[in-house]
């Protein structure tokens, strides 16, 4: 009962624009993996490759799940979601005119999640009391931080094995950033998830990450096995800590 994603020599981009130049990473069962890097270095593009939204030009993405090997580069987004990968996308992408509850219910669209919908809904309302309070309001009427919580909860409603989170901190006040990151850590423990989190905010990301990669110009500039190794690296010092 294990999951693993292996990305090998991945090249991808948008039409003529090449963004990723030979990325190789590994996502291991039960870990929280951070994808770090400043603006425009390809974090979201890598996430989109994992969820089947951007097709690689070259390279392989393999998902091993409970002894089955799948080539993610050949699957459509809805098939990938059906195999238990779920994403909190950049920009949240909620259904603004539907209510909070309807957004959550849509999160449970995939067959395997429908059976657990009431259990998961109860859990989400328990974990995010603000969502319970506002469950009959349109999602678009909530504040940015609340919408981010809803996006996380919606992803959880699909009962994923692997949760991809693309920059949960964007557009949030510092206090909300801490809360959102802490929640992700909590949910990971509760559901035994494997988490891949793209984040610019190095300090916040490292509060829950076990290890990480740093992307620079579409390449892996650093692969660190521990949080400490990342923190002490010259690259991180240079990118984030201004020395």
């Amino acid at each position: 009962m294990a999951v693993k994603i292996t990305v090998q020599e991945l090249h991808a981009g948008y039409g003529a624009v090449q963004v990723l130049h030979g990325i190789s990473i590994e996502v291991r069962d039960g870990e929280t993996l951070a994808l770090l890097g400043t603006n425009g270095n390809g974090k979201s593009t890598l996430m989109k490759c994992l969820i089947g939204d951007v097709r690689p030009n070259l390279g392989q993405i393999t998902l091993e799940i409970d002894g089955v090997r799948l080539d993610l580069a050949q699957l459509s987004t809805n098939q990938i979601v059906d195999f238990g990968i779920s994403i909190v996308p950049e920009g949240r992408r909620l259904f603004p005119q539907l209510t909070v509850e309807e957004n959550l219910q849509l999160g449970a669209y995939r067959k395997a999640a429908r059976a657990k919908i009431s259990e998961n809904l109860d859990y989400c309302y328990d974990a995010f009391s603000i969502l319970k309070e506002k469950r009959h309001q349109p999602a678009g009427s909530m504040s940015g931080g609340q919408q981010q919580m809803l996006a996380i909860a919606r992803a959880l409603m699909s009962s994923p094995r692997i949760l991809l989170v693309d920059e949960p901190s964007v557009g949030l006040a510092p206090i909300m950033v801490s809360q959102a990151i802490a929640k992700i850590g909590e949910l990971k423990e509760r559901f035994g998830l494997t988490v891949v989190m793209a984040e610019q905010n190095f300090q916040e990301a490292m509060r829950i990450a076990d290890r990480g990669y740093v992307l620079v110009h579409g390449e892996i500039a650093l692969a660190a096995e521990t949080a400490a190794e990342l923190k002490n690296s010259d690259l991180i010092q240079q990118l984030y800590l201004g020395t």
Binding site: S76, S86, I87, R93, P96, L98, E102, L106, Y109
Partner: peptide, 26 residues
């Protein structure tokens, strides 16, 4: 349209088709 998964997806599709994909619908 309000009580079934398919019905909710129908109400959501024009709002954000891409977001519908990531919840596993086509």
């Amino acid at each position: 349209l309000s009580k079934t998964f398919q019905g909710r997806a129908i109400r959501a599709v024009a709002q954000d088709a891409w977001a519908l994909r990531i919840v596993g619908a086509n």
